[in-house]
Design a binder for these strands. Sequence first.
DNA 1: GCATTTAGTGAACGCGTCGTTCACTACAGA
DNA 2: TCTGTAGTGAACGACGCGTTCACTAAATGC
Lengths: 199, 199
Amino acid sequence: MTDSTASRRRGDDLERAIFEAALEELAEVGYANLRMEAIAARAKAGKASLYKRWPDRAHLVRAAARYKATEVETDFEPSDDVRADFVRVMRYIAEFQDGPFGEAIRGWVGELGASPADEAEAEDLRQRIETPRIMVFAKILKHGVDRGEVRPEALQPRVVNLAPNLLTHYFLTRGHAAPQQVIDEILDQVVMPLIAAER
Amino acid sequence: MTDSTASRRRGDDLERAIFEAALEELAEVGYANLRMEAIAARAKAGKASLYKRWPDRAHLVRAAARYKATEVETDFEPSDDVRADFVRVMRYIAEFQDGPFGEAIRGWVGELGASPADEAEAEDLRQRIETPRIMVFAKILKHGVDRGEVRPEALQPRVVNLAPNLLTHYFLTRGHAAPQQVIDEILDQVVMPLIAAER
DNA sequence: GCATTTAGTGAACGCGTCGTTCACTACAGA
DNA sequence: TCTGTAGTGAACGACGCGTTCACTAAATGC
């Protein structure tokens, strides 16, 4: 009715449409209220096509999160202001979390511990989310170290991941992404004092 | 069969039994696989008694989490070794997360964003979890400040919450509580360098 | 250009869980 | 001992899950 192009999609074409539909549904109703039939309907696909690809909701959502994770911008050129760079990247992450991707992550977290079988897949998704962040934050920090603005110990993994991890913690436990004020507090109270070359 | 005391409990007595049953179920099957009927059966109660008290699973689990949160040990006497104190408290939190309380928190997080109606109740639970931690960590830090081991700026809220927040982030995104090695890394790479009075 | 194979559709199904209802029963207070 | 209150347990309709199947559109082979 809506589309007079009554064509029938297949393969990757259809898969992408399902992912988009799943993410839109996630954004609208949240993971807990996500219905397979609603995803199928929005994608104008049959429920059977969903179950042919993924065994259940959790797998579909993880796959959708992986799909969306590839959209993350990873080529970032650091300026000569570490704090400003951090703000830019953190705002970018926060915006991402406030969209459908955030709800996908929330669903993934909620499901962890329910099925210890899929630990490997969960680990894979974690890596895909973390890796681009590590690259960007490490680049910023290295640039700061080169200019003497940042102490070299700041390149340790727990320090590189500190800002995004605190952002994610806020998002998960609050239900919405961190506002600018929280980003500022994280930077001024925690991150900058920790990485600054001198006090 | 088990209890030949075929007595019928009421009020708070019954409520406590339901909480205990819910937490045991959570620990065994996880939030995603939690069934109201299983909780009722384990508590030797009728399903109607559950729905008379809470409108749905999410409310029951939040209530159970609140109930369990009152068990948290809050009277902690700091030693003269800040790092050792942090290790002790962080291990205590990690052990708590690996039990039924952890799964309750995971369920709560997964449900956030699904029903914006109960934001107030969610906020209340967050406070109840956070407050005792703030008290303990602030006490440790104050003691450190008094002895000149910790810089006074470490009493800012984001710094006080830093260690438990990173623990919680690890637990939520990994599916299990942080092991000793992770606690050490958090302390040696992040917390101690941040709070130390001198470098 | 036609026949065959592959993949998607949509409706129907059985099943399990939800949340509710109701007749019955045990306990508490007077 | 009587009465009101609260809990029990079984049954119920509704709903979403995950599967099945006859049908159909697209891709592939000839």
